[in-house]
Amino acid sequence: MNHSGLNNNDMLTEQRQKRGIRVTIAILLLFIVAVLVGFVHKLSQPRVITDSELRLNGAVKLQKARILDNFQLVSDTGEVFHTDSLKGQWTLVFFGFTHCPDICPTTLSTLNSFYQLLDGNTRSNTEIILVTVDPARDNPKILHDYVRYFNKEFHGITGDFFEIKRFASQLNVPFNKVMLDEGGYTVDHGSQVVLINPLGHYHAFFKAPLDPAKLKLTYRSIRATFNG
């Protein structure tokens, strides 16, 4: 009797111990999962960085976003593109032209890499446009095919030379036609990418040389601190 009673006690203790171990393991696993979920969540959140950190990473945020005057340009599908077209989403604007073998394809390719790095939500309200500084040679059809080659979601903008000049001046982007000795001409142009906020105001710019990872970091931080 005594003997078997001891055995029963032993078995009970053993069962309790086993249960205790299982509970501990379950708690530990839950804790690990919670930490991982928190970590992944934190990773997916934009990192907010200071204005000086932004500058170190090539982005300059304006003290106060600049309201743009009315302008009227033409999109690469032939529709009117005006000030209101910039409202409702973030827009990255680059000024370039198709007779530009080096820096323009390089920039569009970098913007494509940057765009691919964005998460779906951010991408869905991010517009990337190329405004030509050479409207005499870049009509909507040519721009349409050129820009889509780099990314199907990108758009080209052309229009009257002086309207483009006025639009560019408001964004502090200089450009200038230069005759070449070998014949023909080229256009010197500001190499920065301008950021316009969803109110349609000039908000910030990214200095060249552009880097996809830095663009992503600064762009997401700027978005996170926007309270339009």
């Binding site: 530009c100 073998p101 080096d102 820096i103 394809p105 390089t106 200089p174 230069v178 070449l180 000795d181 070998e182 080229t186 010197d188 142009h189 500001g190 190499s191 920065q192 200095k207 060249a208 040389p209």
Partner: peptide, 28 residues
Amino acid sequence: SSDGISRMRPLEQLAIAAGQKLQMAPGG
């Protein structure tokens, strides 16, 4: 590229010094 402006210009010739490597690259 200077002062934030890109300028494309023709080059007369390109010197490659003895023992040196000249690397062409986008943006240059």
